[in-house]
Amino acid sequence: MRLPRWLVAPPPSVGLEIAEDRVTAVAVSRTDTSTTITAHAVVPLADGLVRPALATPNIEDRDTVARAVGEALAASGRPRRVALVVPDAATKVSLLRLEQVPSRSEDFDQLVRWQMKKTAPFPIEEAQVSVTRGVSLAEGGAEFVVTLIRRDIVSEYEAVCRQAGAHAGIVDMATFNLVNLVLLTERSIAAPSADGPPEQPLAPASAVVGLRDWMLVNMSPSSTSIAIVRGADLIFFRNRPIERGDDLADHVHQSRMYYEDRLGGEGLARVFLTGAVDRNRLVSALRDVESRLERRIEPLDVRKAAALPDRIMVAPELVGALAAPVGLVLREAA
């Protein structure tokens, strides 16, 4: 049953991201004709306060992080509800192929958990599991995007929000909401999926037109995520920690080769790069990846989805910090 709109709580208008080096809050205002960022704040975090990980506690000092959350929210209108973005490195994303999809939801859930139990880095009974239908297989069946995060780790992030006076009504990972932003702003990329479920972690496919493959590279201080999307369906995802001597361009090139050799890729229509990192690192990454792939790499610009007041001058690192929380707010409002 679908409730009338006056009985349904509106989606949060403030996005909050708790990253390893900062807390970002963004207030978004929408009308029938425009979307605007009305307020934002980025509060730096000292090294070690947030350590994204799959199987160990993520927040070292909850009181300090909660104060940073409170400071960011105070600059964004002190909302009571927020859409919360957590680091990619706190989650495990898998692409699960099923030749036959059970018709009963209980059987489907049990099958997914049984399959994920084989590779989960922690007991599946401790996991919060999100499942989204992806591409349909030519031989029947479908591929599913399965995201795992330990419940106690989700609780850590939710707890610092509560301590700061806000309820995290929606929780999602960073890169999925950068994908949302692309889908909502680059309308030449993706097309609707005929058999997708009514609720998706990615943006509604009906918001875009066309059907092409594209890549998104998301840089964070200690890891890099690479997503390849076919239209509006995720077909490849990898998050890996940054180690001494790592070459981002090599990782991107290896991902492209896997896409072409193993996924039947016929070429990437677009490649986007983003990250809330310093300007020099971002510019260097753009240059290196362009050189390695021998093509233009596009910086992802949140201002295509939500305008900033003219008086605000935005540094590239701020554009990167605002992107994921704006993407989550707009996904929920779409």
Results as ranks from 00 to 15, higher is better:
Arg2Glu: 15
Arg5His: 04
Leu7Gly: 06
Pro10Ala: 01
Ser13Leu: 02
Val14Asn: 01
Leu16Gln: 10
Glu17Thr: 09
Glu17Tyr: 07
Arg22Lys: 11
Ala25Phe: 05
Thr31Met: 13
Asp32Arg: 15
Thr35Cys: 14
His40Gly: 00
Val42Cys: 05
Val42Ala: 02
Ala46Arg: 09
Asp47Thr: 08
Val50Thr: 11
Arg51Pro: 07
Ala53Thr: 09
Thr56Asn: 05
Arg62Lys: 10
Asp63Tyr: 09
Thr64Pro: 01
Ala66Phe: 04
Arg67Leu: 02
Ala68Ile: 01
Ala72Asn: 02
Ala75Tyr: 02
Ser76Gln: 12
Ser76Ile: 07
Arg78His: 09
Arg81Ile: 13
Leu84Met: 12
Val86Met: 05
Asp88Asn: 09
Ala89Leu: 15
Ala90Ser: 15
Lys92Leu: 10
Ser94Gly: 00
Leu95Tyr: 05
Arg97Pro: 05
Glu99Ala: 02
Pro102Gly: 12
Phe108Thr: 07
Phe108Ala: 08
Gln110Asp: 14
Leu111Gly: 12
Arg113Gln: 15
Trp114Met: 10
Lys118His: 09
Ala120His: 06
Pro121Gln: 03
Ile124Leu: 10
Ile124Asp: 13
Glu125Trp: 08
Ser130Ala: 14
Gly134Arg: 01
Leu137Glu: 10
Gly140Thr: 03
Ala142Lys: 01
Glu143Gly: 13
Val146Phe: 00
Thr147Gly: 11
Arg150Ile: 08
Arg150Trp: 06
Glu158Phe: 06
Ala164Cys: 12
Ala166Gly: 07
Asp172Pro: 02
Met173Ala: 12
Thr175Pro: 04
Val179Cys: 08
Val179His: 08
Leu183Glu: 07
Glu186His: 14
Glu186Ser: 08
Arg187Thr: 06
Ser188Phe: 07
Ser188Ala: 11
Ala191Thr: 15
Pro192Glu: 00
Ala194Leu: 13
Pro197Trp: 10
Glu199Ala: 09
Gln200Ser: 15
Pro201Ile: 08
Ala205Cys: 14
Ala207Gly: 05
Val208Cys: 13
Val208Ala: 14
Gly210Trp: 09
Leu211His: 14
Trp214Asp: 02
Leu216Arg: 10
Met219Trp: 00
Ser220Ile: 00
Ser220Asn: 09
Pro221Gly: 13
Pro221Met: 11
Ser222Pro: 05
Ser225Thr: 13
Ser225Glu: 02
Ile226Ser: 06
Ala227Gln: 04
Gly231Pro: 15
Gly231Asn: 05
Ile235His: 02
Ile235Cys: 10
Phe236Asn: 01
Phe236Leu: 14
Phe237Pro: 00
Ile242Gln: 09
Leu248His: 05
Val252Gln: 04
Gln254Leu: 11
Met257Ser: 11
Met257Arg: 11
Tyr258Phe: 13
Asp261Arg: 14
Gly264Gln: 01
Gly267Phe: 14
Phe272Leu: 06
Phe272Ile: 00
Thr274Cys: 12
Thr274Pro: 01
Gly275Tyr: 03
Val277Gln: 01
Asp278Lys: 04
Arg281Met: 04
Leu286Trp: 01
Ser291Thr: 09
Leu293Ile: 06
Glu294His: 12
Glu298Leu: 01
Pro299Asp: 00
Pro299Phe: 00
Leu300Gly: 04
Leu300Arg: 05
Asp301Trp: 04
Val302Cys: 08
Lys304Pro: 05
Ala305Trp: 04
Ala307Arg: 15
Asp310Trp: 07
Arg311Gly: 06
Leu318Lys: 04
Gly320Trp: 03
Ala323His: 04
Ala324Ser: 12
Ala324Arg: 07
Val326Phe: 04
Val326Ile: 12
Glu332Asp: 10
Ala333Leu: 08
Ala334Cys: 15
Ala334Glu: 13
